[in-house]
Design a protein around this nucleic acid. Structure first.
Length: 894
DNA sequence: AGTAGGACTTGTCAGGATTCCC
DNA sequence: GGGAATCCTGACAAGTCCTACT
């Protein structure tokens, strides 16, 4: 533990120094999704002529070089229209500024300067901006929404949040702890545990952290209804009945079970769950005034930490399985004897003891179609091998890749190798792939036209062929395999401006594949006669079942792993969240330490401090070094001078391409010390030079590990995401319908997605869908108006109005009319909610954070507390993936 | 200490499956 | 019943981070 004790006065001084406001601005530029040079340019609709490639009519494509996707987000009706919601709940509404406004909002750190969290947290921020502007724009809902859509995700949240905290100021409660050590358990609602980016909303409602005790949900824990592990799962379909191991059973030493031994009990005593939960809740109620982290007995905390530390440094001791809740599959008279099983991760990095599987399945060999493409207008015959590659290109005619010279160049280079030097085809310019494209389209159409029976038969046939590859037996437990299909050959579709896009991804053969399997297991038969596997290994320290070298980048690998629902994956998932939870106990000290180092004389220390601050505050990725043959993207450690522009007095403007070439744009007001440090790091450097020249991810992570065992840069992302969800759910869930609670969840989920910059392309049909919705709403409003008139007339004894087609309507009694009116009103409200939600989420991808960053136990516990069926939040595959989290205590807090 | 290799997680999208609505 | 909307899943690209080697 190298976090040094912090001198309180020194901190205060630092704080005074940096006492300026934190500003989060929206940038005025358009969509933050990607930023390729040609981004946003709608492609014209050529047909055969424009590039001689025979490209048919095409649609405009999204900016990151990928096709638009259909609307994917799950629409959950909002409980209220955004305009009716508290502005505190709606970033969008609270920031109704016009598109062109350069600085949309400003947050001020209004915290008393005596706050210990001081310059780090900036937790009490206020809108500095012009009230009248705010007022005047409040009415411009539609415009503001539109303008919001043009904002980078990263900026949206900050802006949105800015209004949320107008100066509540109960910081500093933990000040006395602050200087002691970096790992002081503290109040769960302490701002120190909140992501810096979302702190300012802390304590928006009184007793925010304690509302878990106030819901009726506790009376009837849903877990009982869901079943023990919540995963009904595909597993049941399996022909062989095997035993399902649970994560808890594997990891009896798990931190959380140490922390709350009761949980395990609860899960075992299934029938008594209700009462036991009640009892637990009562206990929690009694302790409501005590922060959760302090409720845990100190020894338990110590144990938890030491357990984790141990896990992180030494292999876990094998422990006999303690519980075996609701085994999904049990092999009758199995050869997989239970006694022989050892929990994964036991022994020296051992992940399994026995492993049986059937290897991988290969795509079918290429079937030539014989359709001739044109070269200089004349049909050209191609060998099947040449035709196969031509077809790969032809089917991509309608994609944005056709606008990328690099793609075409790489394709042509590789195709030429197959065509041979003296082939008639010498230049892509003169190629017309339309005949092949058309053939492909007609094949697609034929497939579409197949009858349901034919489709079903085909599906069954496929399933029959694949069934045996779909499963592995790990330590006697049947588990789903993730990606058992070998990738078919194709053209590499690198994202962004990947230098290798368009290159031929050659066909993978058995001789390319290394199989990993248990020593005593039968070696999978090679599915292609006459060929054999490259190598057979029996390495039980890894979880992969097979791998081959990436044909595009031969020094990299493609692995076959178990599916996300497998115990092995679940276990590592749980460990990930436990590590992030542990960070909660250290975060205060870590922030103290890096704040101190903002002004360090040691340049490396100083860079580490500033980088850690950015990772903590903005949830940036670590930023590993990249080769020249990869897309030019950056993360924190690889930020270039040109990616961060300091704007005095203390604003940093970020603009860079991150993972998947997704653009990150954000303007953030930072500590003055950080601002100065960044200015200094940029001094005497060119635009393309690294800001953090003394730093790389290994140095940064090595440093982080000194602060907390197992801490790496990415843990901050998990931590920030999960603590944000936990906090928001806790603060913002009020009573009401399930649908309203689901909206609260969506809202929290959305904020996390914004923090993590999880974007998606707007669906092609979005605007059409919105138009249709508006039309329907208008229509219903017309109906409503008519009903009201009829009611008034009927009450006066007059007949109802004529219907729109001029016929007279049946006279209804007032009661029926009133009923109709309320039904129609409800329908309109629902549609308005749907519309708002749809608009709200058109550029935000909620799924990624749900799958990767949000501790599922937060969600499960919240569902239990508020009687929200978990199926409203998790789909079938998430339920399977998070089976390990399903029996969490309703009182669980991250 | 630096680097490459290796193993695993995170991320977006396409397209199939399912549901909704007329 | 059929088409559109929506949901879900798999594919596979692109990250992170650990470890072993030099």
């Amino acid at each position: 533990m190298t976090v040094e004790a912090c001198n309180k006065q020194k901190l205060m001084d630092d704080m005074d120094d940096d006492d300026g406001p934190l500003v989060f601005k929206r940038s005025s530029s358009s969509s933050s999704k990607q930023s390729q040079s040609n981004s946003g340019t709608k492609r014209s609709i050529p047909h055969k002529h424009d590039q001689q490639l025979g490209r048919p009519a095409s649609n405009a494509l999204p900016q990151n070089g990928q096709n638009n996707s259909v609307q994917r987000s799950k629409m959950v009706p909002a409980s209220k229209r955004p305009s009716d919601r508290s502005p505190l709940l709606s970033p969008k509404l609270s920031n109704s500024f016009t598109k062109d406004s350069a600085v949309k909002s400003t947050m001020v750190d209004s915290r008393p300067s005596t706050s210990m969290r001081g310059e780090l947290t900036s937790d009490k921020r206020q809108i500095k901006g012009d009230n009248s502007l705010r007022e005047s724009t409040r009415g411009l809902k539609e415009e503001s929404e539109d303008s919001e859509d043009d904002k980078p995700l990263s900026a949206r949240l900050h802006v949105g949040q800015s209004k949320i905290n107008s100066g509540n100021a109960d910081k500093g409660a933990n000040a006395s702890n602050f200087s002691q050590t970096s790992k002081i358990p503290k109040s769960e609602d302490s701002d120190d545990e909140m992501p810096l980016s979302s702190k300012f909303r802390v304590k928006a409602a009184a007793g925010g952290s304690t509302n878990r005790s106030s819901t009726s949900g506790e009376k009837k824990p849903l877990v009982a209804e869901w079943g023990q592990n919540g995963s009904e799962s595909t597993d049941r379909k399996s022909s062989t009945v095997l035993k399902k191991r649970t994560v808890d059973s594997i990891k009896p030493t798990d931190a959380s079970s140490l922390k709350r031994p009761k949980l395990s009990e609860t899960s075992t005593l299934h029938k008594n769950k209700e009462s036991s939960n009640k009892a637990e809740m009562k206990e929690e109620d009694d302790e409501d005034h005590v922060p959760i982290s302090q409720r845990i007995k100190k020894t338990a905390v110590a144990e938890k930490k030491s357990a984790l530390i141990k896990k992180l440094t030494t292999p876990t001791t094998p422990v006999t399985k303690k519980f075996n809740k609701k085994p999904n599959k049990i092999i009758k008279n199995s050869k997989y004897s239970e006694s022989s099983r050892v929990p994964p991760s036991s022994g020296e990095g051992q992940k399994w003891t026995t492993l049986v599987h059937s290897g991988v399945i290969f795509p079918p060999p290429y079937k030539p179609h014989g359709v001739k493409m044109l070269y200089k207008g004349k049909p050209v015959g191609l060998t099947p091998e040449q035709e196969e590659v031509a077809t790969m290109f032809a089917v991509m005619l309608e994609t944005e890749y056709m606008d990328k010279p690099k793609f075409k160049e790489n394709f042509m280079d590789d195709w030429r190798k197959i065509l041979g030097k003296n082939h008639i085809i010498q230049s892509l310019e003169h190629c017309d792939f339309t005949p092949i494209y058309d053939w492909h389209q007609s094949e697609k159409e034929k497939k579409k036209q197949m009858t349901t029976e034919e489709k079903k038969a085909q599906k069954e046939e496929k399933l029959k062929q694949e069934e045996k590859y779909m499963w592995a037996v790990v330590d006697g437990v049947k588990e789903k395999v993730g990606n058992f299909r070998v990738e078919p050959p194709g053209l590499f579709r690198g994202r962004g401006e990947h230098p290798k896009m368009g290159k031929l991804k050659k066909r993978i053969r058995p001789s390319d594949i290394t199989i990993n399997i248990g020593k005593d297991a039968p070696i999978p038969e090679c599915p292609i006669p006459g060929q054999s596997w490259k190598e057979i290994r029996h390495d039980n320290t890894v979880t992969w079942l097979a791998f081959w070298n990436d044909p595009i980048n031969p020094k990299e690998f493609k692995y076959v792993f178990l599916a996300a629902s497998s115990t092995l994956k679940g276990q590592s998932d749980k460990e990930k969240y436990e590590k992030a939870r542990l960070l909660k106990d250290y975060i205060q000290g870590i922030r103290t330490a890096y704040t101190k180092d903002f002004t360090s004389k040691d340049p490396t220390k100083k860079q580490i401090a500033v980088a850690t601050y950015l990772i903590d505050k903005l949830a940036l990725r670590a930023g590993n070094e990249k080769d020249d043959d990869e897309a030019d993207t950056v993360g924190c450690c690889t930020l270039k001078v040109e990616n961060v522009e300091p704007v005095p007095p203390n604003i940093l403007k970020f603009d860079f391409l991150g993972k998947d070439s997704i653009r990150y744009q954000n303007e953030v007001e930072v500590e003055v010390a950080v601002f100065r440090a960044i200015q200094e790091f940029r001094n005497r450097k060119k635009g393309g030079d690294d800001i953090f020249d003394k730093l790389d991810t290994s140095k940064l992570n090595a440093h982080l590990k000194e602060l907390m065992p197992g801490l790496t840069a990415k843990v901050f992302r998990t931590y920030n995401a999960s603590i944000t969800l936990d906090g928001m759910l806790s603060r913002e869930t009020k009573g009401g319908e399930v649908a309203e609670k689901v909206v609260v969840y969506q809202h929290a989920n959305k904020e996390v997605a914004i923090i993590c910059n999880h974007q998606r392309t707007v669906s092609k049909s979005h605007s059409a869908q919105m138009t249709r919705l508006n039309e329907k709403i208008d229509e219903l409003k017309g109906v409503l108006e008519e009903l009201r008139i009829d009611l008034a007339r009927v009450k006066k004894g007059k007949p109802p109005l004529m219907s729109s087609d001029g016929k007279s309507k049946r006279s209804l009694n007032p009661n029926s009319l009133e009923k109709k009116i309320s039904q129609t009103t409800a329908k309109i409200e629902k549609m308005e909610r749907d519309k708002d939600t749809k608009e709200d989420l058109k550029t935000v991808a909620l799924g990624t954070s749900k799958i990767n960053y949000l501790d599922p136990r937060i969600t499960v516990a919240w569902c239990k507390r508020h009687e929200v069926p978990i199926e409203k939040i998790f789909n079938k595959s998430l339920l399977a993936k998070f089976a390990w989290a399903m029996d969490v205590d309703p009182g669980f807090r991250f």
